[in-house]
Simulated assay, not measured.
Amino acid sequence: MTDIGTTGTAAGDEPPRTALVFPGQGAQKAGMGQAWRDTASWPLVAEISEHTGTDVEELLLKADDETLRRTDLAQIAVFTTEVLAHREAEAAGLLGEVVACAGHSLGEYTALYAAGAVPLAETARLVAARGRAMRACAERSPGTMAAVVRLGPEVVRTLVARVQEDGGQVWIANVNAPGAIVVSGTAEAVDRLAGLAVESEGKVIRLAVGGAFHSPLMAAAADELREALAAVRFAAAHTPVVANTDARPYASGEHWRDLELSQLTSPVRWEECVRTLAGELGCVRFVELGPGRQLTGMIRRIVDGALTVPVESAAALAKLTAPEPR
């Protein structure tokens, strides 16, 4: 379980099969753009601002944590930093032999961009539309999310079913890694599940999110996003992207409208996505592009011996690509 720079090979060896992975909403923090402010890719911020109708530079450099908790703004901010990280890592020659991409929730949109499935302008507009739809839906159908740790998926499914049998609206929203599951639903139902989890020797951590994401309570958001997705030109062929909803790799654009609509109301099967990348697609090196190292930690828990390359800042990238001392 190693953080590794460049390509991780000795001279003459085959380059390792690499997956690019992108984190989702929740990775944002105040001042997150400072890490990329002095890079050659920074003008992309103005470009994304134009496409989204949002002052992204203001978001990345001056917005406080409270502002960045707003769903639509958080998604644009995280997406932009991921695009910057991808462009800079590509220019530095860090990416290597990329055989597949994947992203966690929002990060799936950056994965589609990096895979060549959607141009930057259309991806940015789609991210903005998604954020607006999710925020509006959450205001109409309030909800919350919570992480359930120290319990396996079968136990959590049983507890969810118990709450549902009593009329509670709660569902599994993310299966992130062994013992790391997130539930989503109304505040009352999540509280009831939290009590049951503690009785089963689990632990529940409430998440500071703006709604019950990846649950049926987001159905109205899917309806609103449908029109925006219909206007997008997906590439006929692209680098495979492993989808959140079914953990299957897709290399053609024909599937993504339905997959992204389903993603809003279905669980993110991240653990299975990583197993598909490592198993079926043979990826041994995982480059995480964006703020924080959340996915790196999950991947290490899922794949024994995974080579992980977190790229969260220009400084980290410079360190990863610096020539080795002789």
Rank of each mutant, 00 (worst) to 15 (best):
G93F: 14
F79E: 07
G93K: 13
V118M: 02
A89P: 10
T123R: 03
G93P: 15
A117T: 01
V98G: 10
A77R: 01
E97D: 15
G116K: 08
H104Q: 12
L106R: 08
A91M: 12
A77H: 02
A128R: 15
R132P: 02
V99P: 05
L95C: 09
V127F: 11
D72Y: 02
E97N: 15
R125K: 03
G116Y: 11
R130P: 12
L120D: 15
A85P: 05
G131W: 07
I76L: 12
L73Q: 02
A133N: 10
A133W: 05
A129P: 07
L106I: 02
Y109P: 02
A114P: 12
L120G: 11
A115Y: 12
F79I: 00
L106K: 03
C101F: 04
G107D: 13
T110E: 03
G93D: 15
A89F: 09
A121D: 15
G107V: 03
R125V: 00
D72V: 00
L112S: 06
L94H: 13
A121H: 14
A124M: 12
L126Y: 00
T110P: 06
A111C: 08
G93C: 13
A115V: 03
L84N: 05
L112M: 14
G107K: 09
R130K: 06
A92L: 13
E122A: 04
A114F: 11
A74Y: 07
A89L: 06
V83I: 15
A128Q: 11
A89Q: 10
H104N: 11
T110H: 03
S105N: 08
A102I: 06
I76W: 02
L126C: 00
T81F: 03
E97Q: 14
V127P: 12
L106C: 04
Y109H: 10
A124I: 06
H104F: 10
C101L: 07
T123M: 00
A117V: 01
H86Y: 15
E88T: 02
Q75R: 06
E88L: 04
A91D: 15
A77F: 05
